[in-house]
Design a binder for these strands. Structure first.
Lengths: 235, 235
DNA sequence: TTAATATGAATGAAGG
DNA sequence: CCTTCATTCATATTAA
C-alpha cells in the first residue's frame, strides 16, 4: 500500500526545504500540493526551540500570531499550524510517557531546570525521538530480552481485554486482586484463542529483534518560562 | 517525536545520524539494527488475536502497557510499537475497504474511484492523490514562499516569550520591560505581524486559542494501575 | 540486484 | 487536554 516515496520527485528527501528554498537550489516541482502544512526545517527548529528552550507549550493567540508571522519567513504557515504544532507536540510527549513504562504518575511539574539551556542547543531536541523527557531510562533490558515461548494459550484477560467473544469487549482494566482467580479461569476459555487460525502472514524468519536506538532524553522540559505579556507591552 | 525523518533529509539522507541523541546508542553489545521494530511472529499472532478476536482497535495507554509487557516475552518491543501497530492496522484495513468496496453511501463528493484498485496499488495516491481530489482542485504552487533566513540567533522576545534562560522564570515573569523593549526593536523588521490576518478560520476550523496562557500539566489523571500480578502470573 | 510491496513510524488535522 | 484519522516517509521483506 501506499508508499510513494519517489513520487514527489524529491521523495520527501531533499525536498525538505521545499518552501523556504531560498535559492531554489535544487528544488523544482513542488509537489506539495497537499493542503497540509509541511514545516521547513527552520520552522521546526524554531518551534522546538520555543518549546524546549523557552518553555512554550500552549501559546496564547497573540503569541501564535507572532510566532507564525516570524516563521513565515521560512515558509508558508498559518496560525493554526502553530497552534496545532504545539498541541500535538505536547500531547504526544505526554502520550508517549503514558504508555511507556510509567510507573509514576506524580510528576513534579516544575522541578529541575536544565541550566544548560543553551540557545541554539535546541538541536538536542531536534534529533531525538523525544520520549521521556522526564521518563527515566528504561534503557536497559535492551539486548537481552529473553524470549521463550508459549504462545499457545493466550490469556487475553491479562491485557485488560475481555477474551470472551462478547459484543464489544471494551476493556475493563483495573482488576482487583480477587480477579486473579478470574484470570486463571479465563485461561481456559482462552483456549479458543490458541486455536485461532493464524492469518497467513509472513512466517517468522526473524528471530532477532533489533534494538531501537530510540529516544534519548528530551532536552529539559522547561517550565513555563513564558512571559505572557512580554509582547503585551504594547497593549 | 520529531526526529530526523523527512526534515533532515538534505541530500538524500546522509545527514541522518540520529541515533546518537545523547541517550543510549552506546551500549549495543548485541545486535544493533537500530532501526524499526520487527515484530516476531508470536507477537504478530497475539496482536492479531487481540485485533480480530477481541476487538481491540485503539488500546488505551494502560492496555498498551500490558500488551507490550506481555509481548516482550517474545521479543523486544515498546509501548509505542503496540500503539502504532494498532493504528496502522486499523487505518490500513479501513483504507483498503475504502477502495475495494464502494458503498456509495454518503460522501458522493469524490467518487472518482480508480477502477479496480487492487489493494496495493493505492500507491496511486501519490499521484492522483486518491483522496485529495480536493487538493487536486486547488493544488497550486505552495512551493514558493518566502525564503531567507537567519535562524541562528533568534530573538525569542519577539514571540512574546522570554528569551532568557533565566533560572526561575516562572517566579518572575514580569521581567523588566526595559529588556523587552530593547529586544522589541526588532519588531520593526516584521511589521507584518500587526497586519496579520488573524487566523483565517472559517467555519471549518476550530479556534481554541483564546483562553490560554497557562499550562496546567497536572491535569493528567492517570490511575495507571500496572497489574502487578500480570507479571507475577507467569512466574 | 532491483522493483514492488508490506508495514513501522511520524505527524498535521480534527473531533470530542 | 485526549483520542482518532489520514497521509506521508522510511525501511524491512518478498517477488521478479
Amino acid at each position: 500500500m501506499e508508499q510513494q516515496q519517489q513520487v514527489g520527485g524529491n521523495g520527501g528527501n531533499g525536498g525538505n526545504e521545499e518552501q523556504g528554498g531560498g535559492g531554489k537550489t535544487t528544488s523544482f516541482v513542488c509537489r506539495q500540493s497537499s493542503t497540509r502544512w509541511t514545516p521547513t526545517s527552520d520552522q521546526i527548529r524554531i518551534l522546538k526551540d520555543l518549546y524546549y528552550n523557552s518553555g512554550v507549550r500552549s501559546p496564547t493567540a497573540e503569541q501564535i500570531q507572532r510566532i507564525s508571522a516570524k516563521l513565515r519567513q521560512y515558509g508558508k504557515i498559518e496560525g493554526k499550524n502553530v497552534f496545532y504544532w504545539f498541541q500535538n507536540h505536547k500531547a504526544r510527549e505526554r502520550q508517549k510517557k503514558r504508555f511507556t513504562s510509567d510507573h509514576h504518575h506524580h510528576l513534579p511539574i516544575y522541578s529541575n531546570f536544565p541550566n544548560n539551556i543553551n540557545p541554539g542547543s535546541s538541536s538536542a531536541a531536534g534529533l531525538l525521538n523525544g520520549y521521556g523527557s522526564v521518563a527515566m531510562e528504561n534503557s536497559f533490558r535492551e539486548c537481552s530480552i529473553t524470549p521463550n515461548a508459549n504462545v499457545g494459550g493466550q490469556n487475553l484477560a491479562w491485557f485488560g481485554v475481555d477474551p470472551y467473544p462478547s459484543p464489544y469487549p471494551f476493556l475493563e482494566m483495573s482488576r482487583s486482586i480477587n480477579d486473579q482467580t478470574l484470570l486463571q479461569t479465563t485461561e481456559e476459555e482462552a483456549s479458543e484463542i490458541e486455536t485461532l487460525p493464524l492469518f497467513p502472514m509472513h512466517g517468522d524468519a526473524k528471530q532477532d529483534w533489533h534494538h531501537r536506538g530510540e529516544d534519548a532524553i528530551a532536552a529539559g522540559s522547561l517550565e513555563l518560562s513564558l512571559n505572557p505579556y512580554a509582547a503585551g507591552f504594547r497593549h
